[in-house]
Write a protein that binds this DNA or RNA. Structure first.
Length: 581
RNA sequence: AGGGGCGUAGCUCAGUGGUAGAGCAGCGGCCUUUUAAGCCGAAGGUCGUGGGUUCGAUCCCCACCGCCCCUACCA
């Protein structure tokens, strides 16, 4: 019985102090999460009584419940099972875009259409509303002497956010807007909580991420981003399917987390009593499939890396990885250029894509070696820049890095740390990341990676300090990573052992002998590539944070009462104790 | 992890060392082609949490919580 909410609860609820509850009503950390927790508490506390649902804003929530009761009292169902519609609002808006007033008057196209009420303008004995569906808004017009008093009362009881279906025909108003002339209106789902503001929408980023559904309802841009994301994934599948690849799914839970350098998440399987890692890459399993004769495979799925969160990193992210047998990285350079141009064109209509202040041209990749990039973007103040030959010479990268660090320190820049422990190839990689990466705005294929930082790649035919590997950089972000796969089991085992011996949190603690055994059965020369789908989506939707392209990005869980931790004991009995801070 | 910013009504935002305001939403009333509908009326806030300075704190100081941005790690 919602009406008693503000009243004294001491009878039904003697052990629950008033103060704590009032505080939660009026200072919710956020509306949805808090409320959902409290529902379970109150339903159990009240045993048999109508559960109290103390959602914020309470006054509006209670008001809407009251209307819900009035709707039901008039014999209408608040939550019916289905509604047979003939078109979505979006389809109607599109289909009748060109139909003028007279044409509609002549044909009076009949429609049955459903959607969520986003605006409501009551004018006494008539009223307008917009319902949304399929990402478009369609106006409806409800008139007392058309629908009759019973339905008109129902209409007057509607709130913003309610889901309704209408039956009628299309016409255009005086101002020319396509509108449904409603003859029948059905409530399809009551909304008990208000929508975000109708004009500004929802801009609080935290609520946008935590309650993404509100973002999707009220911000067109958000909905478009995720539609486009789906389109991107669809185009990628089309691209590979058309080229004879098969899509596969390999383990997410792996006994040894390999295929990349990253700290894994750990989980545990009870029946087997073993720890497992959430995969950091599907790579080693996909290559087992190449051994197995699936000569062209791809997988689009999640990877998990236990690292920090930033505008470019989410702990779980989606990667496309694909492998093709009897190929090398040159083949993949060509394929990648084709792939990005294809996806950009199909999804945005052009290979030229606006990204912030830049226009990225996915139809025109530049190619550059890692050493060239370091030389080209060497800071003028630290002149002279090293030459490519300098960086190729033994000790050359270290000399260059020492020179850079000396300059950086005297100019307030962050020096490259830990140089002493690094090999030449590692230093070259660090120099690239420090000096060059952020400058690679236009789509770039960066090739000639040092062997020292590429344990899974084949060496160059003419230079064992380099591997046949390239990465794709766009807008200063690493977007893809590809190489001629190392298929010599002895060489692979040697490199794995080196890694394990060198240690570190981002390296497996043991050599994946099962993978080596697979290679020992013989893997064809193979080229493989990984592409970050979230980042690609960022680029193709002009989004500048990865959280804008992930529906539910990882956020710190919100625990009611935590904000007042230590001072408000009212809820401590029901809160999980949070001992890791 | 370090630096910066933000947190005021359900939403979008103003604002001040003397305990707060607008628009939208909500409530009551009028209104049968409106569209950020309009008009009239009433309501809504322990200004993120806790502590300190002060006669007095939403404002100043400290700590904490959450979010955003930058840097670091990573893709």
């Amino acid at each position: 019985m919602p009406g008693t909410l503000g009243a004294d609860h001491s009878q039904g609820n003697p052990h629950r102090p008033r103060q704590g509850r009032a505080e939660l009503y009026h200072n919710p950390p956020s509306l949805g999460f808090l409320a959902s927790r409290m529902v379970t508490r109150y339903t159990s506390d009240l045993r048999g009584e109508t559960p109290l649902l103390p959602f914020e804003p309470l006054d509006q929530y209670l008001q809407r419940q009251k209307k819900l009761a009035e709707v039901e009292a008039r014999g209408f169902e608040a939550y019916p099972h289905k509604f047979d519609w003939t078109a979505t609002p979006a389809e109607l808006v599109e289909k009748y875009a060109a139909a003028d007033h007279d044409a509609l008057e002549a044909s009076k196209p009949p429609v049955r259409v459903a959607g969520r009420i986003l605006t409501l303008r009551l004018h006494g004995k008539a009223g307008f509303a917009h319902i949304s569906g399929g990402g478009q808004r369609l106006q409806i017009y409800v008139k007392l002497d058309v629908v009759g008093p019973k339905i008109f009362e129902l209409f007057q009881l509607m709130d913003l956010g309610d889901l309704i279906g209408v039956n009628g025909h299309l016409f255009r108003t005086r101002t020319g807007e396509l509108t449904v002339w409603v003859s029948e209106l059905t409530l399809l789902g009551k909304s008990l909580l208000p929508l975000p503001e109708k004009w500004h929408g929802l801009s609080d980023v935290e609520i946008r991420y935590r309650q993404r559904y509100l973002d999707l309802i009220s911000n067109d841009k958000a909905r478009e981003v995720f539609h486009r994301r789906a389109q991107i994934v669809r185009e990628l599948r089309r691209f590979f399917d058309a080229r004879g690849y098969i899509e596969v799914e390999t383990p997410m839970m792996q006994p040894i987390a390999g295929g990349a350098a990253a700290r894994p998440f750990v989980t545990h399987h009870n029946a087997l009593d073993i720890d497992l890692y959430l995969r950091i890459a599907p790579e080693l399993y996909l290559k087992r499939l190449i051994v197995g004769g699936l000569d062209r495979v791809y997988e689009i799925n999640r990877n998990f890396r236990n690292e920090g969160i930033s505008t470019m990193h989410n702990p779980e992210f989606t990667m496309l990885e694909f492998y093709q047998a009897y190929s090398d990285y040159h083949d993949l350079m060509a394929l990648s250029e084709e792939l990005f141009a294809h996806v950009a064109r199909e999804v945005t209509g052009s290979t030229k894509v606006k990204y912030g202040d830049d226009e990225l041209d996915f139809g025109n990749f530049q190619r550059m070696s890692m050493r060239e990039a370091v030389c080209r973007y060497w800071p003028a103040g630290a002149a002279p820049a090293p030459s490519v030959a300098d960086l190729a010479a033994p000790g050359g990268p270290r000399a260059a890095a020492d020179r850079y660090n000396a300059w950086a320190q005297s100019h307030g820049r962050e020096p490259i740390a830990d140089l002493a422990a690094q090999k030449d190839g590692q230093i070259t990689g660090l120099l690239f990341e420090t000096l060059a990466e952020s400058h690679l705005i236009q789509p770039t294929i960066l090739y000639d990676f040092p062997t020292d930082i590429s344990p899974l790649s084949k060496c160059r035919r003419d230079d064992s300090t380099l591997v046949e590997r390239f990465e794709i950089y766009v807008a200063g972000m690493e977007l893809g990573n590809a190489f001629s796969e190392l298929n010599d089991p002895a060489e692979q085992e040697r490199r794995f052992r080196q890694q394990v011996e060198a240690g570190g949190e981002e390296v497996p603690r043991e050599v994946d002998m099962d993978y080596i055994r697979a290679l020992a059965h013989g893997m064809p020369p193979t080229a493989g590539e990984g592409i970050g789908i979230d980042r690609l989506t960022m680029l193709l939707t002009d989004s500048h944070s990865i959280r804008e392209v992930i529906l539910f990005p990882l956020l710190r869980p919100e625990i009611p009462g935590e904000a007042a931790a230590g001072s408000d004991a009212a809820d401590s009995s029901t809160q999980p104790s949070d001992d890791k801070k």
